[in-house]
């Protein structure tokens, strides 16, 4: 499959390329719009020149091509594959972004700090008495 991939450049319109080539079955995309934005999706089926069906770490649904940003990765999956198959195939690619990460907005890395134990009142009184 001779798929041409052009990396994202600001101001360059990907839509000028042939959409059918970019949005084949198995193409890994990033969802740009909606509440699933920022998560990885895979194209499962083509409906027409504007719409595809997507699945992966997003809700399985119909999606406009304008709401997807294609990446250079292709997966070998069948037409209308189940969500389990798609997720397994997605895990084979090394993806930098976390899977179910509701990232950016509420993302705070956990701190690995040990809890400092407060000294008990009894011990303080005893130490003061010694002094």
């Amino acid at each position: 499959m001779g798929v041409i991939y052009v990396p994202f450049v600001q101001g360059l319109n990907l839509r000028s390329l042939d959409n059918k080539m970019l949005m084949d079955i198995g193409r890994v995309c990033i969802k740009i719009a909606g509440r699933d934005a920022g998560n990885y999706a895979v194209v499962i089926d083509n409906i027409d020149s504007n719409y595809v069906i997507i699945d992966g770490y997003v809700r399985r649904k119909r999606c406009n091509i304008k709401h997807l940003e294609p990446t250079s990765n292709m997966l070998k999956i069948t037409k209308k594959a189940s969500t389990e198959e798609v997720k397994k195939a997605l895990d084979t690619i090394k993806i930098k972004v976390k899977k179910d990460q509701k990232f950016i907005k509420n993302f705070k890395p956990k701190k690995d700090q040990e809890e400092v134990k407060k000294p008990l009142k009894k011990n303080i009184i005893k130490n003061n008495a010694k002094k």
């Binding site: 600001q10 990033i30 740009i32 719009a33 509440r35 934005a37 940003e69 990446t71 509701k102 907005k105």
Partner: peptide
């Protein structure tokens, strides 16, 4: 707004931001 960056960036700017984070 339930999108990432919702309530901070408009929809067009958030799209550009999410595309940049891809790499």
């Amino acid at each position: 707004v339930s999108r990432p960056y919702g309530g901070n960036l408009c929809s067009i700017c958030s799209r550009i931001k999410l595309k940049e984070l891809r790499q």
